[in-house]
Simulated scan of single mutants.
Amino acid sequence: MNPIPPAEDHGTLVDRIRQDLLDGYDEELELEIEDRHYTADGHDPVRSDDERSARMSYFKSLFHLQGELVKLQDWVQATGQKVVILFEGRDAAGKGGVIKRITQRLNPRVCRTVALPAPNDREKTQWYFQRYVSHLPAAGEMVLFDRSWYNRAGVERVMGFCSEDEVEEFFRSVPEFERMLVRSGIKLIKYWFSITDDEQHLRFLSRIHDPLKQWKLSPMDLESRRRWEDYTKVKEDMLERTHIPEAPWWVVQAVDKKRARLNCIHHLLEQFDYHEIVKPPVVLPARERHEDYHREPVPAEMIVPEVY
Rank of each mutant, 00 (worst) to 15 (best):
E34T: 14
M56L: 13
Q214K: 13
L202A: 07
V70N: 12
Q66H: 03
I195F: 00
P211V: 03
L13S: 10
G140T: 08
V234S: 06
R241E: 02
G94P: 02
F63E: 10
M56D: 11
F170N: 01
V83A: 05
R122C: 02
M56R: 11
H10K: 14
F59H: 13
K190S: 07
S53T: 09
Q271A: 05
L69C: 15
R261S: 08
Q104W: 00
E68C: 14
V155F: 00
L262W: 07
I195C: 08
H201E: 11
V298H: 10
L72E: 08
L222Y: 02
T113Y: 03
V182M: 04
H290A: 10
P305W: 03
P245L: 03
L205A: 12
S206C: 13
Q66N: 07
Q73S: 11
H64M: 14
R90M: 10
E178K: 04
E306Y: 09
R226N: 10
F129V: 08
W192T: 02
V234M: 00
E123L: 05
A254L: 01
E168P: 00
V174T: 07
S148P: 06
E176Y: 10
L65W: 07
W127K: 06
L86H: 04
T125E: 14
M142V: 14
V133A: 13
V307G: 02
V143L: 01
E168F: 00
Q271C: 11
T79I: 04
P45H: 07
L21F: 14
T196F: 01
V83N: 04
P108R: 03
W149Q: 02
E51V: 01
R109D: 08
S53Y: 04
N263M: 12
S134Y: 05
P108K: 05
S134K: 15
L69T: 13
E51C: 04
L106M: 11
R295G: 14
A118W: 00
R131V: 10
Y274R: 12
V14R: 14
W250K: 15
R287W: 09
V133Q: 07
L29D: 13
L262V: 14
A93Q: 00
E166L: 05
P245F: 05
P5G: 04
Q253S: 14
C111L: 02
R225D: 04
Q253M: 07
A115H: 08
D15A: 15
I195R: 03
D23M: 15
L181E: 02
G185Y: 04
W75L: 07
Y308T: 10
E168S: 08
V110D: 06
A92H: 03
G42P: 05
S206R: 12
E30L: 14
L269T: 09
P297N: 11
L65F: 10
H43K: 12
P211M: 02
A139H: 12
E229N: 10
Q73E: 15
D35Y: 12
D237F: 09
L72Y: 13
E236S: 11
R47E: 06
R172W: 00
T12G: 10
W249T: 06
L136S: 07
G96S: 03
K95P: 01
Q214A: 11
L212V: 08
P117M: 05
R131D: 09
S194W: 08
L72F: 13
D198I: 07
W75C: 07
V307K: 12
L31M: 06
L86S: 08
I33E: 12
D50T: 09
E27R: 12
